[in-house]
Amino acid sequence: MTSTEPTTAEAVVFWVCAILSVTGGIGLILSRRAVHSALWVALTMISLAVLYIANAAPFLGMVQIIVYTGAVMMLFLFVLMVVGVDSSDSLVETLRGQRVAGILLAVGFGLLLAIGLGSALSGVPVVGLDGANGQYGGNVEGLARLLFSEYILAFEIVAGLLIVAALGALVLAHRERWQPRRTQREISQERTRTGVHPVPLPPPGVYARHNAVDTPALLPDGSVAEISVPGPLRARGDLRPVDTAAVAETAALASGEASYGPSKRPVADDPGTSPGEPS
């Protein structure tokens, strides 16, 4: 790849990735949902990474995916998911002159980019990728050599900055603990010793006619287990009344006085027996 003309494969890769990355950029701006925007950015990042790899900078491409797509964007997604699925962003602009400032900044950035690229492309001798990478025996080795010799100061400053940021996050998230933290052992001991129900409570609806949260479970002997209904419902008095007939039937079945089977069951339209009475 010493010639400056791109091969067919390179041209194909370039056009596919270029279109994808620009689509991602446009999609970012046009998406209504924050998660969709995040996905478009991820697409742009991955397309750029493929371009880096195609341009003989595999390390940069991989790090781009691992750091930006895998960690930074994932963190964004994480926050968006914590915020909630259906929360939409408010589109009311609160900053005065936001648009003008944004346009000015964009134009300035474009100028900076154009001037930087122009000066980089005009006055610098082109050695080709193999020449640049081959100087130290490869792309990774070349990058390492530059990072740890010429740019060591910048590298260390960035490292220091990141550590300060991490410490800052720790300090912000730190909570002063007034009492020693209770361990799982202590919590379980306390629960056992205070004599409250030590194991998971019976779920509502078990053995009952309805399988709903407000239907108290019936214990195997037919008695009503009110603790099976969640506390808030109990406090509001929102318990569904228990079908006493079913309870009696269950009790009869449990004690062996009645047995299963169609012949033993009461006939519904029989006036002599009330429905639900064990026969």
Partner: peptide, 21 residues
């Protein structure tokens, strides 16, 4: 390629997107 182990890591980190999404 010279960074193939990093490639596996990169692919794995994109794979997480499937689960999260």
């Amino acid at each position: 390629f010279p960074v193939s182990v990093l490639y596996v890591l990169a692919i794995a980190s994109i794979g997480i997107y499937g689960i999260v999404l």
